[in-house]
Design a protein around this nucleic acid. Structure first.
Lengths: 137, 137
DNA sequence: TATTGTTATACTCTATAACTATA
DNA sequence: TATAGTTATAGAGTATAACAATA
């Protein structure tokens, strides 16, 4: 039996994932990229906007209106970087942390359901391989 | 150790895959969706445009200019469906079959390199799980 | 001279509605 | 009345260049 193509497989899976995540994020009033920003900020030390853009794979110019909105919503704050007056550091507010935690819990539940066909061992193997593929340069 | 999120992992992997496929398809003068069409036509019996659109997850209206171009390039032909005069069936020409086979071979080589960190058993397990996630209802 | 955040702009991708000819 | 293919158009997503402030 001929194996399927990776591109087709991953494309279908990503479409299913996006479809499953949409309603969950909607409940929290977050866009996919908005949630990506909050999650990154929750998991790594506060950095500059440029560092954030690179970390999540988003263009620095597209990041501006996204951060504007998150800041208006009281979820993040931009602060001048004392070490470099050109730069702003971005960090979560308490409300941002709370919203990120709540959304993450719902996303996690969705993921568990998404993977429910696989044994715990299979799930561990899957995460190991996906992580390898995602982070290899 | 906290596991990463599926969305972030798959997003990164798809971006890596697209970046790796781009140059390969460019060499054959194909766009990603053009290649997707040729591959689908190579693997399933000739159907209507609507069936093709659904099979590859592409809107029927966006499919039109894509098929126009592939037809101009002599890779596919549209033929009237004898059973329904509203419908057109789409099939590969010989040139289309040849180009699809050549592109697929190069894509396959790229994929093998992409997965070269994993043992054959791991690769089989990965394909089994990806296929399950891609095709589940 | 190079870099950070920003703005503006152009380009691509995608979704939607409407039209025709058939059913 | 509904469907297949088509067309047109509007909106979202994305890439790029340029600018001011700072390094």
């Amino acid at each position: 039996m001929e194996r399927e193509e990776l591109g087709a497989l991953f494309g279908r899976i990503v479409r299913r994932l996006i479809a499953a995540e949409g309603p969950v994020l909607d409940e929290h009033g977050l866009s996919m990229w908005g949630y990506t920003v909050l999650s990154d900020l929750a998991h790594r030390p506060a950095g500059t906007q440029l560092a954030l853009a690179k970390a999540i794979g988003y263009d620095k110019s597209r990041l501006i209106p996204l951060l504007d909105q998150l800041e208006r919503d009281g979820l993040i704050v931009r602060e001048p970087d004392p070490a470099d007056r050109r730069a702003h550091t971005v960090r979560l507010t308490e409300a941002g942390q709370a919203l990120q935690a709540a959304a993450q819990a719902d996303i996690r539940a969705m993921e568990n359901d998404f993977l429910s066909n696989f044994s715990p061992a299979d799930q561990r193997a899957l995460f190991r391989m996906l992580s390898n593929l995602a982070h290899e340069d």
